[in-house]
């Protein structure tokens, strides 16, 4: 980096894209338009195609509102759980040495690599009426599968990696020296966490929480296996969309879908804003 001529050459290359770069940009934008932007637009167009009145009716219907409430309930439980888990896991993995660390890292990624449907099935096998713990749970009067609790558990598992995965690389890059410095200055572990570690990772943490939230709201696969799919009771927003769609209620389906897409867009915008902030922070740290 200290070599000015090299720096200049690099920025020169970045300024002068050339024909190949143009091809790549067109390909990327074209692909995104077909695969992402058009479908997203279609959702809103379709939702509003029968007029604003019908749209508003569709989203203020009691079943729709209950789906929104259930989705928010799931988010409010799953996201904090995974935030605490992500923080704990990242702290443990990056600040301490212990055997089995690599295994833990691999396990954290597991929910990303297995299909959510399989996650859902696992819970049915464990807690379903004929599952391993089914009889015991029934004896205690607890129902998980086909109940709201099953939806929460399934969503929590599927969204488990998001916070941890944001934090671990950053905390690994930051190292342990600041925590060590705090200790030599007489700070307790608690104080060190709140005043040194947490401020250093705040943007990455928020970013992870947002990703986790977006994912938790949209979770379909696992939830569709463990939910009874009763409208107004155990239907989250994605399930509600599917049920309405299967009932040939396109306006209703697209109305809920547009709400869900709107939530996701808000999360995306917040994420982008944070990312800019986060990038500035990261650059400052690299200068540091």
């Amino acid at each position: 980096m200290s070599d000015p001529s090299r720096l200049e050459r690099r920025s020169h290359a970045a300024r002068d894209p050339g024909p190949m770069a143009a091809v790549f940009v067109v390909l990327t934008v074209g692909f995104m338009a077909v695969a992402l932007i058009l479908p997203l637009l279609a959702v809103f167009v379709e939702a509003l195609s029968k007029g604003v009145g019908l749209y508003l009716n569709a989203i203020s219907e009691s079943d729709a509102l209950s789906a929104v409430r259930l989705t928010l309930l799931v988010v409010v439980i799953a996201v904090p759980l995974n935030t605490v888990f992500g923080l704990t896991a990242a702290w443990a993995v990056t600040k301490f040495e212990f055997s089995g660390k690599q295994l833990l890292l691999t396990l954290i990624d597991l929910p990303l690599s297995i299909s959510p449907v399989i996650s859902g099935l696992m819970f049915v096998l464990l807690y379903g009426a004929h599952g391993w713990f089914g009889p015991e749970l029934r004896a205690m009067g607890i129902q998980i599968i086909f109940d709201v609790s099953g939806i929460v558990i399934a969503t929590t598992l599927v969204t488990l990696p998001f916070v941890a995965r944001e934090l671990i690389p950053l905390m690994q890059a930051q190292g342990k020296d600041e925590e060590y410095a705090a200790a030599t200055l007489g700070a307790s572990t608690w104080r060190t966490f709140w005043q040194v570690t947490l401020p250093n990772i705040r943007w990455a943490l928020l970013y992870g929480v947002l990703l986790c939230t977006a994912r938790a709201m949209g979770e379909f696969g696992a939830v569709s296996v463990v939910s009874a799919r009763v409208r107004g009771e155990t239907a989250t927003m994605p399930l509600e969309v599917e049920i309405l769609y299967n009932e040939y209620n396109a306006t209703g389906a697209f109305a809920i879908a547009s709400l869900l897409a709107l939530f996701a867009l808000v999360a995306l915008i917040a994420k982008t804003v944070l990312e800019n902030q986060f990038a500035g922070d990261l650059a400052a740290q690299r200068r540091h």
């Binding site: 020296d177 600041e178 410095a181 007489g186 307790s188 005043q195 250093n200």
Partner: peptide, 19 residues
Amino acid sequence: PVRERRIGLVFQHYALFRH
């Protein structure tokens, strides 16, 4: 423990609290 030793340590890369 570290925090009771009253030993000032200056790290090679300073380890200043960046925020």
